[in-house]
Simulated assay, not measured.
Amino acid sequence: MSDALTDEAETLSNKAAKKRRRREPPPDPAPLPGLVDAHTHLAACGGRDAGSVRAILDHAQAVGVDQVVTVADDMVDARWAVVAAEWDDRVYAAVALHPMHAGDLNDETAAELEQMVRHPRVVAVGETGLDYYWPGKSDDCASPEVQHETFRWHIDLAKRVGKPLMIHNREADRDLLDVLAAEGAPDTVIMHCFSGDRNVARECVDRGFMLSFAGTVSFANAEELRVAAELVPDELILVETDAPFLTPHPYRGQPNQSYCLPYTARAIAEVRGVSEEEMARLLGANARRAYNIPLP
C-alpha cells in the first residue's frame, strides 16, 4: 500500500474510533457519597418508563448520587417529569417552559403548569429564563420579547407557590438580571449550568442566587467558570449534570448521565482546595436545602 493510501486509511480509522468513542458512555467514577444531581433530563437520557428510570438511578446511587431533579423543557416534558417523580422516590421534578418554548404559554398551559408545580414531588419552577443564542438560528425558538413575558410569568409563579426558580441563561446576562431585579426575585434562585464570567458570578452572589455548575467547569477553556466556582460562598454552590449534555472532562462529547456527577464534583473540589468528600457533603446538603428534599 502506498504512503498516501496508508495515511488515508489511518485518518479514516482515527475518525471511526473518535465517532465510536463519542457513542460510548464514560466509565464509572470512584464513588463519592452524598451527592444530588441538581439538574438532569431523565427522559433524554433514556428514562422513558419506570424500569429505565430506576436503572438510571440505581447506576447513579452506586457511585454516591442519591437523588436527582429531572427538569422539563416543554409541556410534554413537564407532564412526564411529574410522573417520573412518582415512579421513583429518588427523583424530584422541576416544571416550566424553556425560553425556546416560551411561545407555548397561554391560559390553558399556564393553568396546567400552576397545577403541576403545586405537586409535592415538584421542587422548583424551571427551567425558565432568557436565551439569546437560538433566536434567528431556529424557527422554533420564541422571540426575545415573548421570552421576557413568559419569564416574568414564571417569576411570579415561583413567588406565589413558594418554590425555587431555576434559571436558564444563554447570552442574556444583563437583561436576565435586570428582569429579576424589576420583578423581584423569589427567595431561592438557582442559576442552572452557570456560564457567566466572574463579574456576573459576583453580582449573582451579591443577590443571594445559587450557582449550579455542570461539566463545563472542567473544560480546558473554562477558566472564568473555575474562577466563579472558587468565589461562590459555600452555601450558594450546587452541582449538576444537565445530562445527557455537557459531560465533564476527559469525556467531553460522550453520553452523560447522573452517575457521571462525581467527576464534576471532584473538579469543583480541586478548584476550591477542599477534600472531595467535604465537597460532596456540602453540595448534597445545599441541594437538599434549596429544593426542600429529605435525606435519602
Rank of each mutant, 00 (worst) to 15 (best):
C204G: 04
Q257V: 11
V71T: 13
Q61R: 15
N14V: 12
V68M: 08
E145L: 02
A30Y: 02
N14D: 15
R202I: 02
E240R: 08
D156V: 04
R20F: 08
L225Y: 01
C204Y: 07
S275L: 02
L177D: 12
A81P: 10
Y263M: 08
V69R: 06
E230T: 12
A185D: 07
C141R: 10
D28M: 15
V271L: 03
H249I: 04
E24T: 12
E240Q: 08
V239D: 06
G46E: 00
P144R: 07
L57W: 01
G103D: 15
P233R: 00
P25I: 04
G196P: 15
E127Y: 11
H249P: 03
V189H: 10
D7N: 11
L130S: 08
H148V: 15
Q115W: 12
R272Q: 11
F151Q: 02
T216M: 12
V179W: 04
V123N: 01
G196K: 13
S143C: 04
C204P: 07
A43G: 06
V117G: 01
E24K: 14
P29Y: 04
Y263T: 09
A185G: 09
A4W: 05
A72N: 01
P29H: 03
A96G: 05
D104R: 08
A96D: 02
A267I: 00
L246Q: 10
Y259I: 03
W134T: 05
A110K: 15
G51K: 01
D104K: 11
M100H: 15
P164G: 03
K159T: 02
Y132R: 00
T247G: 05
P250G: 09
F219T: 01
V117A: 13
G284L: 08
D74P: 03
T70H: 04
R198L: 05
G253W: 10
P164Y: 03
L42H: 06
L283G: 09
D73L: 10
A228L: 09
V123L: 03
A60C: 12
L283N: 07
D187V: 06
A280M: 05
T128H: 06
